[in-house]
């Protein structure tokens, strides 16, 4: 497909669209434990309240990657409208065969600590949609900006994340060098 074919006016109209401010699920100690099990990242800052307090924090911190964490299942289409709106990219009117989604990259900034059990909220905005040819065909690159707020409405995290969508690939076509999910 050509660039003009994949970038319809309806799709491009999503640039600038902003999600409502959404409360995020409060992460629990067992979420952090499962993160530590998966990564081996047993930093006492996210496991030991006393240790964190000895450094002047009010309790243990969330591991940076879990700040603003949204379980993938909540972002999937097919969830309720409220849950689907966590991730505007899931609702984009891309061509039907564009089911091959890859993580093209991100930039994340942590402005303040976020703590275990702290209620956080998030808002996101589609900032760019472009098409570029690559080894896996004509890719659609969607960039979204997200902000995560603490209960004082202070920004604790800013992220700019790009995903790439490609057409379904036949076996042995390419190895996905444009990135991974």
């Amino acid at each position: 497909m050509s660039e003009r074919e994949v970038l319809s006016e309806v799709l491009l109209a999503w640039i600038g669209r902003t999600s409502p401010l959404q409360p995020l699920e409060v992460l629990s100690a067992s979420d952090v434990r499962r993160y530590v099990d998966a990564t081996g990242d047993a930093n006492p800052l996210w496991l030991d309240d006393d240790f964190a307090r000895s450094l002047g924090h009010r309790g243990r911190l969330l591991p940076p990657l879990l700040v603003g964490w949204i379980p993938f299942s909540l972002k999937e289409q097919g969830a309720s409208e409220r849950l689907a709106s966590f991730d505007l990219r899931r609702q984009l009117p891309v061509p039907e065969n564009y089911t091959n989604v890859r993580n093209a990259g991100s930039e994340t900034e942590w402005l303040k600590p976020a703590f275990l059990g702290e209620p956080l909220s998030s808002q996101s905005r589609i900032v760019d949609i472009v098409a570029r040819p690559g080894k896996m065909g004509m890719g659609i690159y969607v960039t979204q900006e997200e902000q995560v707020f603490n209960p004082k409405q202070e920004i604790v995290l800013r992220r700019r994340h790009t995903i790439a969508l490609f057409p379904k690939q036949p076996f042995g076509a390419k190895e996905g060098s444009e990135g991974d999910r």
Binding site: E109, S177, G179
Partner: peptide, 14 residues
């Protein structure tokens, strides 16, 4: 423990 990861940008290439 006294350091702070302020910002990271990543581009996945393979």
């Amino acid at each position: 423990p006294r350091g702070w990861l302020r910002k990271i940008s990543i581009r996945h290439t393979h």
